[in-house]
Design a protein around this nucleic acid. Structure first.
Lengths: 232, 232
DNA sequence: GTGATTCCTGAGAGCTGGCTGAAAGCCACC
DNA sequence: GGTGGCTTTCAGCCAGCTCTCAGGAATCAC
């Protein structure tokens, strides 16, 4: 997954920054603009591999932008960003041809997962496998299925996202703030205690199955998923 | 089904885009034009395996285009696209040879199925089987027949399309938006609740026959057809 | 040992997403 | 023009999920 170019199109500067830093850190090559006209220009020059496109833009909406892009022969898949209340009646046609959409607010980990899923599907770029396997945990991202020691485990959506984030960063301490920032939606304003709760839920479901506790507590710092064999 | 060339002829740019992206993603090699004259040129140079032809074009109608094509020795089968209000007798007679027609608005899944059916019939290109069999479900696409555990099941058109879409993507979570975009007509602007309804209908018909529930709900994500033996 | 800090976890309130039965509208076919 | 089946909407219900809180356990500093 080397040098994947992402074009971000959103008029809110904070969202743009949030996505830029986050995706850059995830290893993507990022370019961000704030309106449709700039998006068309940037896509023409930059030849992005994927486009993150806010549906509501000041000058033109996301559909006009994609139409313009397609007519110019730019066929990079699009991940639409839409506010939650404008989803239902406007979804038609959004998930066609490798495209997808996400509702705001989203979580950063989720958006990286979706980008990888799209790249995987469109096969324009060789990317990581849909199956994440580290130590005794195996996650099939297509099926949203989790196995511990070969045995299927039922997880709630948040439990699933948390576990995926943990095993994506094995043998590395993650602070509760980091976990909150990546797993929960960016406008979540609750306490970090919720991370403790969910770690507890995960342990309760996973530890009876695995040979040893998988999530270690680093007191005063955070949590770490320990894996002897680093299948990276 | 490698490298099947499809020529799309429609004057509405959004339909053209919708079909292009969708068919390209379905694995076809796509070329799209907006009028009859361009269609003739493109067919001459591109040697398409199948032509999607809107009956109402700005310069000439579908009859003239096909007549022209046939006179030039281009015998690729044609799938006509016609508006619903255009009467049936205008259409009958169009479907000579391996040709076929569809009324707008259509669903994207349906058009792929029809294209495959035509290619299968004309045998110009080796394509996928007409019988889809995954797990306990068997669908004969030519006869529109469905068997669960060897037993025949009566399904309504929409139920059939939904089931076909589900088992075409086994062991993979499909969101309600994806299902809506593929199974329902592209101008459907209702709510996603209808997907829930139809999943419910399918389950009511299938679950009593099969040994275990076939359609799994992934809360907060979508639905998945589970098949132990991945006949892929 | 004692107190302070951090973490764990059970209980519970409230919410959300999904399921389903009922009914209205539509259409095709007698 | 009536009838039956199909599609679509809607509302009520329920299960499961999210999040908070508080008491107690574990760990650390001294």
């Amino acid at each position: 997954m080397e040098n994947v170019k992402v074009l971000i199109v959103d008029d809110e500067p904070n969202i743009r920054d949030l996505l830029s830093t986050s995706l850059r850190f995830a290893g993507f090559s990022v370019h961000a603009v704030g309106n449709g006209a700039d998006a068309v220009n940037a896509a023409e020059k930059g030849a992005p591999d994927i486009i993150l496109l806010d549906v509501m833009l000041p000058d033109m909406n996301g559909f006009s932008v994609t139409k313009k892009l397609r007519s110019m022969g730019i066929n990079a898949p699009v991940l639409f960003l839409t506010a939650r209340d404008e989803t239902a009646d406007k979804v038609t046609g959004l998930t066609v041809g490798g495209d997808d959409y996400m509702t705001k607010p989203f979580s950063l980990d989720e958006i990286v997962a979706r980008i990888n899923a799209i790249l995987r599907r469109t096969k324009q770029v060789e990317t990581e496998e849909s199956v994440l396997e580290v130590g005794e945990i195996k996650i099939n991202q297509d099926a949203h299925e989790v196995f511990a020691n070969g045995q299927s485990v039922d997880l709630s959506p948040t439990e699933y996202k948390l576990l995926r984030f943990l095993i994506s960063n094995p043998n590395r301490v993650l602070t509760k703030a980091q976990i909150l920032d990546h797993v929960w939606e960016y406008d979540f304003n609750g306490e970090m205690g919720i991370v403790e709760s969910y770690v507890s839920y995960l342990r309760k479901k996973l530890d009876p199955i695995t040979s040893e506790p998988l999530i270690q507590t680093k007191r005063g710092v955070g949590y770490m998923y320990k894996s002897t064999k680093s299948t990276n």
